[in-house]
Design a protein around this nucleic acid. Structure first.
Lengths: 328, 328
DNA sequence: TTGTAGGCGTTATCAG
DNA sequence: CTGATAACGCCTACAA
């Protein structure tokens, strides 16, 4: 910044005024300063900016790259944060990196708040983390809630109930649900299936998969167990899209036709679901809505730090594709 | 830091000395200072640290969360960077966020260097970006090379040649390669197939998929075209694992058995390849090796800024699984 | 072991 | 519009 000032023969303050669009400079100098900044390759030093204490306008995001639902939310978080004047800094959750470590790094950058996506931390650890971070903490895709942090999640029960309604409407009378307890928010989705089924007056079988994995592999395990059984059900609901894809794969290799012989549904409407070879009936968890809600929670908490942390439930939407049909 | 000093009644310098393990403090005070830092919830201000100019020990990483190969490398980058005393700060490449924007943000944090994973920028734009960033730039998974930036990639040609060798060894005499020009490093892999085939004295058919997508969707398109043809080939090589999975899905739904009727191979050994329902013969691009090579390139360039940027090729490894067998 | 002093890049306030 | 001055948190150097 001093370089620009020297180069133009003006004061540093003037340059600062122009670059942060503050009042107090003529249009002509604004242009000159901006041009000089361009040619000199000027770039604001974000660390120095945050040093000033007040209003650092940076949100930290901890997430697991590779998890489809989370990366979608991250993608949506950029515009959502920008709309409120915030920038994002990311920190990865990996096998070698705990939620705590990731959040600690973000706090090192003095983020105004931290958004944690899909952490598998226990409720107690999450609360401890929120106390430890002295900035607002927002948890996305958890089925618990504070105290100490805001929670954003989609209504997994409503979504599942909508899928059940869709299948019953097609004429199915008995549904099988692939329940994978290791999956975040598994309980909520199971609830939705059971309540939806009892409301529609239809039978439900539970196929419980006991594995730490809750993606394609779990779906494949469920598929193999279904095939070993005497008769196939007419409709199977998987806990999420990845499980549904694993299930579809196993069914296809076994010569079972979808949807002619069996209808299959997923949850999430991730990238996988809309692939032409998958074409999965599912429930859309809108990442844009989730992202906007998360940023909204941050802003609200920063405005009123003493307010009780809340729970925001985002409404899911049924997406009917080619993997469901009337029973054979 | 001043808080700790006040709380203990010592000087800030002493606290600084203890916290960065510098000589000049007694063991007893070290313990006291550390305990106080704990209880006061002290956390170093990374921005302020970087402000000091020299040796900021932070590497910027620009990548697309969601791309399997890239997230694997990111996961491996954390330990690789830590081994050299570096921390990582991440910036996402998304539909709404260009490589340029992501790198600009990283430069704002005054990273010592920037690592860009799998950017689809043209060679000219990449060079411009390297000039614009005044710190070392390392590109991972590109088939071009500088000047202006170091490149790390796996030997796609050798990997493909190894797959060809494996298939020929099984007795296949005619191979079909799914060529998707939009895929990064597509040319290199095509080369490997052609050279491997001519060395082994076997025929090759090219199935070119013209689509911007180079993942499951492209593989599914290729699969549908194969099935519409008169006779199926005995072996199909896909450009990467995702394409292979899309291909497998379409083949399975069409009643084609893998590997009894057709052998299928992928490239990358991503998470998908080892799923039990996929069980794909492929080539492993080791993310650990790639990550170590990338950090190594950074360190070398920081030591000798004037050295000519180089190309580092990581050797891939054949992984034989259940999707390949002798021809029917 | 402690104190003093300065600098890193930015924002902010004050009086000219 | 400029000039002067301060503050943010951390590091380094030098002297007591």
């Amino acid at each position: 910044m001093a370089d620009i000032a020297a180069h133009l023969g003006v004061s540093r303050q003037l340059v600062s005024i122009v670059l942060r669009d503050a009042p107090g400079a003529s249009d002509e100098t604004r242009v000159r300063v901006r041009r000089a900044a361009q040619t000199l390759g000027y770039r604001p030093h974000l660390g120095a900016r945050n040093l000033r204490g007040a209003g650092n306008r940076v949100l930290g995001v901890a997430f697991a790259p590779g998890r489809a639902a989370e990366t979608d939310v991250v993608e949506s978080l950029y515009p959502a944060a920008a709309a409120q004047g915030y920038d994002l800094v990311l920190s990865a959750l990996t096998r070698t990196r705990t939620t705590r470590q990731a959040v600690d790094q973000l706090l090192g950058y003095r983020c105004a708040a931290v958004i944690v996506l899909g952490s598998q931390l226990s409720a107690a650890h999450m609360r401890a983390l929120a106390r430890h971070a002295r900035v607002p903490l927002v948890a996305v895709a958890r089925d618990d809630r504070g105290p100490g942090y805001d929670t954003i999640r989609s209504a997994g029960d409503q979504g599942m109930a909508a899928l059940v309604g869709h299948l019953v409407g097609l004429g199915h009378e008995r549904l099988t649900y692939v329940h994978c307890p290791a999956m975040p928010m598994a309980g909520l989705r199971l609830d939705g299936v059971l309540r939806g089924a009892s409301a529609a007056g239809c039978e439900t079988d539970l196929l419980e998969v006991r594995s730490r994995d809750h993606t394609e592999e779990a779906g494949a395990m469920a598929g193999r167990r279904l095939i070993r059984r005497r008769g196939l059900p007419t409709a199977v609901l998987a806990g999420n899209d990845e499980q549904a894809v694993g299930l579809l794969h196993v069914l296809a290799r076994a010569g079972v036709r979808v949807p002619q012989d069996v209808s299959v549904t997923g949850y999430g409407d991730s990238r996988l679901a809309s692939l032409s070879a998958v074409d999965l009936t599912t429930v859309r968890e809108d990442p844009d809505q989730t992202a906007v809600a998360a940023v909204g929670a941050v802003v609200r908490r920063l405005d009123a730090p003493s307010a009780r942390p809340g729970l925001r439930v985002v409404r899911p939407r049924l997406v009917v594709r080619g993997s469901t049909a009337p029973p054979p």
